[in-house]
Design a protein around this nucleic acid. Structure first.
Lengths: 187, 187
DNA sequence: TGCATCATGTAATCAGTTACATGATTTT
DNA sequence: AAAATCATGTAACTGATTACATGATGCA
């Protein structure tokens, strides 16, 4: 139950419409939390009626009007309360791991292509993260005399987590491939 | 939609009751897929009526009777079909990352305790995995002449994935703590 | 006597996914 | 002329969580 809170964080970082939020959930925020536009619109409505967010109609030239949402004090308070509640360290839900164990009862070699596909997807994601890091987080560390921007630093440490995750995953997928190949040739 | 398949894999590795499955989902399988007993019983019923699993009543001495489930050909076929379907590389859903970005709009220092709590939990989990690895996967690699057991090898590579994940997470949490401390002292 | 473990379930609710729907503008 | 992008939604369904419920045995 934290889609609400993810939306609050995203709107605090930058106010925006439901559509814009949906696109952010495909990019930055979506790296560690994903949601479709249908879900987002439904939750936005609930949040608005709870007073967690404010809506403002923004007429646009040559585009449909949009509702821009922002976060008032009540929303900030709701976020703050959640931040102070402990959450459980999550357990991962890893379909691929189920498939790998399942391969013992099928043809292990048939999994190789699937694992390679995942390997490519994670390679792409890593490249994407690294490009984002170069774009958004280089240079200013060296800029002397600038105040340390907490938001920026925190966004960066989360991104470093994503990068570490992708690197770890790629190394593991190499291990999986080596294991599958070994099982394929050793019989 | 893969709880069914996780159950099939678990029952193929070892037939058992709903209760036993629920406990396995707290341990081995649950490391990468979790489910409660309520969910498991419901899904078992559907799977039984679909012919994916067979039930056998097992009377026990000094214990309530149990239903032991096993996997007939139809269930194996269902698993095999799923194994051959491609799945999407999953996006993680990481509450803690949301909290870290949210800390920019609250007191970053207040998160330190929470992050430390997670650090301890992951340390415990890593120790648990390593103990399991020592228990189940040492020695026989060196045993010459034994046929390579595909199931064992595949379980081991999945466990190595869990170990790699925990190590990566611990290193990242150290990074997060260092960042939070830096933000706390630098102002 | 009370608590933990073994064993199985129902009911209600909440969250998430998939399918369907509309309509304007801009790009190919 | 067709496809992509911007923008917002409803409806139906499936999956997951939480609360409630029962009843035996074994241990402290």
């Amino acid at each position: 139950m934290a889609l609400e809170h993810a939306i609050l964080v995203s709107l605090l970082e930058q106010p925006g419409s439901g559509y814009e939020l949906a696109r952010r959930f495909e990019r930055s925020i979506g790296y560690f939390w994903n949601a479709t536009h249908q879900q987002i619109y439904r939750v936005l409505k609930r949040m608005e009626s709870d007073g967690w967010i404010d809506a403002r109609d923004v007429p646009q030239q040559a585009r449909p009007d949009k509702k821009e949402y922002s976060v008032p004090a009540l929303g900030r308070a709701a976020l703050s309360q959640w931040l102070h509640e402990p959450i459980e360290p999550e357990s991962v839900r890893h379909d691929l791991a189920v498939k790998i164990r399942g391969a013992a009862f099928d043809d292990p070699a048939a999994l190789i292509r699937e694992v390679e596909r995942h390997h490519r997807a994670h390679t792409d994601r890593l490249a994407h993260y690294l490009a984002g890091e170069r774009r958004d987080f280089t240079g200013s560390e060296a800029t002397a005399g600038s105040e340390p921007d907490a938001g920026r630093e925190l966004q960066h440490v989360v991104l470093r987590g994503g990068i570490a995750y992708e690197r770890m995953t790629l190394a593991w997928l190499d291990d999986v491939l080596a294991t599958l190949h070994r099982l394929g040739t050793e019989r």
